[in-house]
Design a protein around this nucleic acid. Structure first.
Lengths: 109, 109
DNA sequence: TTCTAATATCCGGAAAAGCGGATGGATGCA
DNA sequence: TGCATCCATCCGCTTTTCCGGATATTAGAA
């Protein structure tokens, strides 16, 4: 559960997902890392219960997962409340905002 | 910050410290691991800001650290609220309770 | 069915983290 | 000052994790 958050890229992903559901291609574009790397991190987050996924056509959308584990709920609440103002993640949020505006031209709907 | 919690022993230490301040020898007794291992983990937790220490004579007492980082505060609150009921940590708590009773005979005050 | 695009998994090598005995430093007491 | 105890750090070794190109899988469109 904590091990899944022990890697910077995975925390960045969780940070981005506090902004809502995103597909893998979005994350690849923002994080600027190989697709295989992003996908591997998403699998780890999913196995740990931090995120859930939904298929829509060819695209997989990932979001923060709902859970019944009280500790997990508490931590998620802390994330939703505080991650959006963490400085270290500001660049990602900014990039995502710009990306979302130009998205219709970019690809996945 | 999260990396420091990515190791089971360190989570167990945080779990034990939700019960209050403990000295290194207490933790060595409960966790049944070499002193150097415990000390190394404590250093990591301290550098990450999760715990603080206080010297009393020859003994070093460790406790959960107070912090002004909002995210950190939120996570810590979730720990204090929920770790005490996490099953995986029950054995440690039980052992600590028994240990504390017999402590006057055991050593550090 | 065939092709294309999005995503997941595989795999060999590199990097990081963990381990614990040995050692060193600090403190209190005689 | 000498000694004993508690704790922190060092160091060689083992284990785990990460990386990313290559490959496999899946869904939709032609």
């Amino acid at each position: 559960m904590f091990k899944a958050l022990s890697e910077e890229t995975r925390v960045r992903i969780v940070g981005l997902l506090t902004g809502g559901e995103r597909c893998v291609c979005d994350l690849v574009a923002i994080l600027n890392l190989p697709q295989s790397t992003i996908s591997r991190h998403l699998t780890i987050l999913k196995n740990a219960g931090w995120v859930a996924s939904r298929r829509k056509g060819v695209w997989m959308y990932y979001r923060l997962a709902e859970t019944k584990n009280p500790l997990h709920q508490g931590l998620l609440a802390a994330f939703r409340a505080n991650l959006p103002s963490v400085k270290a993640l500001a660049a990602d949020r900014k990039k995502m905002a710009a990306y979302l505006k130009s998205k219709p031209a970019a690809g996945c709907d």
